[in-house]
Design a binder for these strands. Structure first.
Lengths: 233, 233
DNA sequence: TAGATTGTTAATCGATTAACAATC
DNA sequence: TAGATTGTTAATCGATTAACAATC
């Protein structure tokens, strides 16, 4: 695993490579060139080769990349064969959806505990796992040492809770609570997820598309035309 | 509303500005300088001023920005006072969470219909709205003309469904189904959301933090030190 | 060998940061 | 007026794309 700082832009593209290669593998595709992969993913072949070469030469000149091998390499770089001990706090609508919808093993995570402060929720089972009361969190952490916490709690509860968890040894947060989490210590990793922000980009797009319909439309097709022309790789 | 193409990077930052300004307004903060806002948001004052000036001069020299006015301006730019007619298809765990967790009015959207192909789900009420059977989708669209569709359906169902919806007049997709959606027509807006991709960046971070603990730690503090020093604005 | 396609360097492009004159 | 802070231009930095020699 080569060690020169990898840029965040590259890191954020890795899961997508992994996903596409997985689908190709399932379809039985054995080899693929950067050119063909770039076509399918809607990016340039240069970028793919550049990205992959941050980590080493996974391809073979004149041949391309072995789909399965490349996927495994990227999986290893991402760390998906780890078993990061993970807890989820807050089992409202969103928390329950995360617990059931996200495939933790495929993300190198193992969900080892669910917590909620609502006594009507604590005690119940969700996805075959018992929901513990939030009061038992400290004791649990001392015993089980989770390193990743998923926060699906109300905005005002999140910062205090997060500080507490850091003191208990948690090193990474997947934060769905409204409001950004941030730590002075850069060793604490935070991924703030704001679904509304994502939706708002569509709202923006719709608002600014309707404003200058015809102009936009012709401009847009120009862009796509030049895109396909430019990719002379 | 000035018209020179705004870069996606800027657009993606707008919801976050809006969010922070909203919180400041709630706290009763009347004015704020780009310097102070940048400190709170963890970015440079230059970037904030640069971003805002894509849309016009909202500040006042020597004073700063009026929090409430700026928030309203950004809200208007985003189009949050619109009522984009929105449908949601697929009311599994994630679909239900989206329906209940996301504040559609605050995103300029109006949820006008829920659909599911499962006869055990269709007919029920979710968040006080009836879930229609997916078979009734075409009829509904002809009558109600939704322009935005939220897809929480299985991966294999999404592409065909999306094409059908485009034919029925839908112009924007918030896609939660595994697998990316993409249209040849650039006028169709798509926001692909992959929660697992987000989690995987944490998995990556944890894997690569542990590898060179001490080196990382000192490097990291160097970075944060130089960051705070560099902001001589 | 000839053709294909990589790995990698160089060129371009865009986004971020710094600086400062304008001005409230 | 003096101080503060913007709007905006110029400089820097980083990321993407193009090009091509290496090589399978």
């Amino acid at each position: 695993m080569s060690k020169q700082e990898i840029s965040p832009s590259v890191i954020r593209r890795l899961p997508r490579y992994h996903r596409f290669l997985g689908e190709l593998a399932e379809q039985g595709t054995v080899r693929i060139s950067s050119k063909e992969l770039s076509r399918q993913m809607g990016m340039t072949a240069s970028q793919i080769r550049q990205d992959l070469n941050c980590f080493g030469g996974f391809g073979q000149q004149g041949y391309g990349y072995n789909v399965r091998a490349l996927r495994d390499e990227i999986g290893q770089i991402l760390g998906i064969s780890a078993h990061r001990r993970t807890i989820l706090i807050g089992l409202g609508n969103l928390g329950r959806a995360i617990a059931s919808h996200v495939s933790f093993p495929e993300c190198g995570c193992e969900l080892i505990g669910l917590f909620d402060s609502n006594p009507f929720v604590a005690g119940k089972d969700i996805e075959g796992m018992p929901v513990h009361h939030a009061d038992t969190l400290s004791g649990f952490c001392h015993q089980e040492h989770p390193e990743l916490a998923i926060l699906c709690v109300p905005e005002n509860a999140a910062p205090v809770l997060a500080e507490k968890l850091v003191a208990l040894g948690v090193r990474a947060f997947w934060n769905f609570s409204h409001g950004d989490l941030h730590f002075a210590d850069p060793a604490i990793l935070v991924e703030n997820v704001h679904l509304a922000d994502s939706l708002l980009t569509l709202t923006y797009g719709l608002a600014h598309e309707t404003l200058n319909d015809s102009a936009e439309e012709s401009a847009a097709s120009d862009i796509s035309a030049s895109l396909s022309t430019n990719r002379k790789d």
